[in-house]
Design a protein around this nucleic acid. Structure first.
Lengths: 186, 186, 186, 186
DNA sequence: TCCTAAGCGAGACGGTACGTCTTGTCTTCCA
DNA sequence: TGGAAGACAAGACGTACCGTCTCGCTTAGGA
């Protein structure tokens, strides 16, 4: 029995990859809303109609690519089962290695679609790591979003401002502040 | 010396206000990018060319209106000079009273432009309240953005999810978590 | 010598017939330019690429089918060798029996390609029946086209307007007018 | 009271004229269906969106221009009130003088839309000139379409084949054949 | 009977045109 | 002198066809 799951027509894969790569490249160059579907197709050497046979719009292309990231992060998460918010370091490292991509995803030039999606992803990861707050006036989701916002804004600032700090420093800052904050409510 | 050195021509004010109001109204109804300049003008009973004599684009109109908010917040801040992050309660109350507007500004339907601007505003407010961190591995701006992100995401979640919690609960949550976090680094 | 020098592979015949039938059916339903190659293929249960292995475009398919009609008319013509324009009655009857097809070929919904082809066919038939005009100011082809236009427009009007007149009446009208006209110039 | 009927905005007129001229020019160069709206706009130095603010499609542009022709013919008709089918000579002359335009309108490269419209126009003109047929088996409209078809096909052949015959010869042929034909039925 | 060339469907692909929408500039007229 | 009205060029959008192509499956017809 051979591999070929369902004859994915090597060609299609190539087209999809080219589009994805083109989009990422363009995102590092200009604002999300300045990127037209035509731009992407030109860069990818793909006909515009071909684009539309695969995706509804550039947002769909982006979100499709997003699933990869999601999977990678979930994988990382598996490794660090021991520690609360153990995935954080993995994500910080990942963002550091792919600074350009993350600057495009999170930074000034990004679009609302991506950042919102990202926020959701982080919030989900965090939610799974936290117990219920002791204090009944404090809603569990409130804590989740507090931490998610803190983490993401810290990460975004770091990447976007091209700070000379290293991943260690960011993790250090995040843990140093988050642990007492959580200790106070959980 | 007479009153109107620049003779703001009552009419102009009326036009500007109508536009501002129209934009706010539309933002509570649909997504930022679904609002066209024509929509705004129709709603405000203003000619499209008139719009362009006053603003470059809908973003400019929004940011112009933003200054009002900024001033209000700065005023609130003055009153609470005693406490660190004293403005927070004022802003939380303000957001609560104008839920619809804030949902439009911060929530799902919002646009990247507004939220970024908002983030900057909050970060500035926070920066003025915080001392330098003791730990040299922790950058002052990192702390600022950590807190800003936490506060804003908490606020956004609260408003956007239409949580039944009251302003008290939100302030409580914010302070309860933020104080130990800051205590650990400042 | 065996039958199939070119071994037309029964299948091919089936495909071609299906396409032809599908086109005719569609022509009775909608305008020529509203029929897409995909429409034809769907109707004929034939792959679009198969269509293109047999025809350059839908025009080619139509003209291929046209040859049948041509042959039928030539056959009719043979029978009536005695009378000038003797084929006319045959064609009128034929058009009457296949009203739907002829309405599609000649009528409002038809296309330029078909009607032009039809005009040429009629003109050829007529040309073979007419002597040279006596009057040298009158060109033979002028007479041919005069009669062809008269005949075709009469026929088209009759079929397209769904007139209750019968083939007899049409032939009568045509002969009654054409004979004196020709008598005047030939 | 000044002229300006309703301030037709000189500019609009210029745009419309440019488009009309561009279409006519293109029709003398290529087939009707090979002309794209973009072609027309390029030729007329007009934005494509401007085209669509004035016309639904190229057909609408053509038909708008057609009204001019219609008016001209009706005017000619007035002059020749004396004679049956008196307008014919005017139209023949007109077609001769504007051979290129008429070749585009009627000839091989033309489209179904135009020729149908033209047929209708001629049929209307003829209808007003003819009495009812004596023979009850002969429908008045049948005679109208007979003559219309004869005239148009004669005219078309003459123009399209670039025959060296002059307008005199064509009118001569037409009258010489049509008069006995009509005499036989009216 | 096998096997080999064809016919065939499915559908990816680049391309062109469509008609719609929005943008920002501009001109013209009215109060 | 504003502002309203709206013409205009530009250009992106998503859709529809087109004609070309590659891919496997099937299915005869000749070995």
């Amino acid at each position: 029995m051979t591999a070929g799951t369902s004859a994915p027509d090597r060609r299609v894969r190539r087209t999809l990859d080219a589009l994805r790569a083109a989009l990422v490249a363009l995102m590092t160059e200009k604002d999300w809303d300045e990127i037209s579907v035509q731009d992407i197709c030109d860069r990818a050497n793909v006909g515009r109609s071909t684009f539309y046979t695969h995706f509804d719009d550039k947002g769909a292309l982006l979100l499709a690519g997003f699933e990869d990231l999601r999977r990678q992060l979930r994988a990382h998460r598996g490794k660090e089962r021991g520690q609360r918010l153990g995935w954080a370091r993995g994500l910080i490292d990942h963002a550091y290695e792919q600074r350009d991509l993350f600057r495009a995803l999170l930074g000034k030039r990004s679009g609302h679609l991506v950042t919102r999606r990202f926020r959701r992803l982080i919030a989900e990861l965090i939610k799974q790591d936290l117990a219920r707050p002791r204090d009944e006036r404090i809603h569990a989701d409130a804590v989740v979003h507090y931490v998610a916002g803190a983490f993401l804004e810290l990460l975004t600032w770091w990447i976007d401002a091209r700070s000379p700090l290293g991943p260690d420093d960011i993790e250090h800052t995040f843990r140093r502040m988050t642990e007492p904050a959580l200790a106070a409510v959980l």
